[in-house]
């Protein structure tokens, strides 16, 4: 029952986000609200990842996976306030700009490692092939193609900029490529969640899959330049949803491992 409420929380947050943003009178107030909630959801996501990692012991596979997710979230969390603080002194060639791009790059690389660790869990358990092999392959390829369609434009733009002499585009390009790889791993995560259906472990896996799907929507919204309302890009809604789903996944992971230990006592 608590896991169901946990799963509903990210949707409830998204509705509240929209309602509050609509009710604010000025664009400045909306902008401040968006920045504040962006930091809040990243802090929550970090807390969820740390909670999940702490549910396991040193050497456990999923402790490593959740730790990488925590590092990724922490680095990207650090970047947000730094960007605000450094904005006055930032230009395209400054050390501040390189620092911010570097944090994004390392954060995205840590994300790829974390998501890849999660995605390979079923194979590591080595019990059965997840899903019917042909269907599993079709699903994985289908999601990968979708991820490429959505996320490739950003990578292509960064590549063009790099060729045009913008050296900072190298970190943008690397981040975009890392993003594509992480999105392509939605297929294995989804298959694991489906395989675990009916059991408590399907909850964290379902939520982490939903998190990655939300990032897919984020990239699509960003690529299309869609707005939720004046001053609020639609991708902000999906960013909040994705990070809240990551928080919920981490909490669910910790709850389920504790449930096993209580049952086994």
């Amino acid at each position: 029952m608590r896991l169901r409420w946990l799963a509903l929380y990210p949707l409830a947050f998204a509705v509240i986000f929209f309602g509050v943003a609509r009710s604010l009178g000025t664009e400045d107030a909306v902008a401040s609200f968006v920045v504040g909630q962006r930091l809040l959801v990243r802090v929550l996501a970090l807390a969820g990842c740390v909670l999940a990692a702490s549910a396991f012991d040193r050497g456990d596979h999923l402790r490593r996976a959740w730790s990488w997710m925590a590092w990724s979230t922490a680095l990207l969390l650090l970047r947000d306030p730094l960007r605000l603080a450094l904005e006055p002194i930032q230009d395209s060639t400054s050390a501040a700009a390189w620092l911010l791009d570097g944090l994004a790059l390392i954060g995205n690389l840590a994300l790829v490692i974390g998501v890849w660790q999660l995605a390979r869990s079923w194979r590591m358990a080595a019990m059965t092939q997840p899903g019917n092999s042909k269907k599993a392959l079709a699903l994985t390829l289908g999601v990968a193609v979708l991820a490429l369609i959505v996320a490739a434009p950003a990578a292509a733009t960064a590549f063009r900029d790099l060729l045009g002499g913008d050296s900072r585009a190298s970190t943008t390009l690397a981040s975009a490529l890392a993003d594509i790889v992480a999105l392509c791993l939605i297929g294995p995560l989804l298959l694991t969640a489906i395989e675990l259906r009916g059991g408590l472990f399907s909850w964290p896996w379902g939520l982490i899959t939903a998190c990655r799907v939300s990032w897919l929507f984020y990239d699509a919204a960003a690529a299309l330049g869609l707005t939720l309302m004046p001053g609020v890009p639609l991708y902000e809604l999906f960013r909040g949803l994705a990070l809240n789903l990551l928080f919920a996944a981490g909490v669910a992971q910790a709850m389920v491992v504790r449930a096993v230990r209580r049952a086994a006592a």
């Binding site: 596979h61 999923l62 358990a125 080595a126 472990f201 096993v260 049952a263 086994a264």
Partner: peptide, 19 residues
């Protein structure tokens, strides 16, 4: 136990196996 350890951690898997 090995497969269980992947998803629930070594300690929880051991405890469940003992049960």
């Amino acid at each position: 136990q090995s497969a269980l350890s992947t998803f629930m951690g070594r300690v929880a898997a051991e405890e469940l196996v003992q049960k």
